[in-house]
Design a protein around this nucleic acid. Sequence first.
DNA 1: TGTGCGTATGTCCGATATGACATATTATTC
DNA 2: GAATAATATGTCATATCGGACATACGCACA
Lengths: 110, 110
Amino acid sequence: MRLDKRRKLERAGWVVGDAGDFLALSPEERQFVEVKLALADGVRRRREHLGLTQLQVAERLGSSQSRVAKMEAADRTVSTDLLLKALFQLGGSSRDVARLLVPRVRNRAA
Amino acid sequence: MRLDKRRKLERAGWVVGDAGDFLALSPEERQFVEVKLALADGVRRRREHLGLTQLQVAERLGSSQSRVAKMEAADRTVSTDLLLKALFQLGGSSRDVARLLVPRVRNRAA
DNA sequence: TGTGCGTATGTCCGATATGACATATTATTC
DNA sequence: GAATAATATGTCATATCGGACATACGCACA
């Protein structure tokens, strides 16, 4: 695992192996966390692409700036439901979501 | 919208337009619901493909038969988090999930 | 018909997510 | 380095979710 990704996971509050180099996550948990990270990245990229602040996005969603910040940080307390709703509210499609999940094509412009 | 899909939505407890033909859902809400339906279908198909009962799946997930039934029915009280975790626990990959979200390739064998 | 198995539905209570708010941190401009 | 804007972090009350249980439904088979 790349170091920056691990840092990101740790900052988001995920339990990382304290002794060794590896995440104390089962493969399934890890897959799930990666989905959340991907969706979170998608929210951030989409927001930036639209030139909006977190506050503006929060207003669109009927949420708060802090929650949007947590979304983008893939915080433990944000659900994939919330991330998906945010992506759709920001104009994303199912296809966009699908693309976020597949590493092969994850590095896109928007 | 196809009638059977609407029936499915209604059974799952989603609010459907009472007067006219249309769902009382915003486009974003509808997209979200469709994601849930797709994931729910994915769980069911994956379970059946593995030849497992809902009870057996529940045991794998550390959950209960009734919750698995609700997952497959895309019940309002099941989150996409739960659906995703279930899919991964049943051996699904991110790519599988992505495929579920894209109608174009949704009709696959397993 | 009745028995068994799988699935669906309704409810409950403990667990977790959410919006809101306060406050901290960072970046930019003067 | 003060002032401002944007983002990050911590906490709380309430809303929603989730496992568990009871029970109902559907279907096969004898």
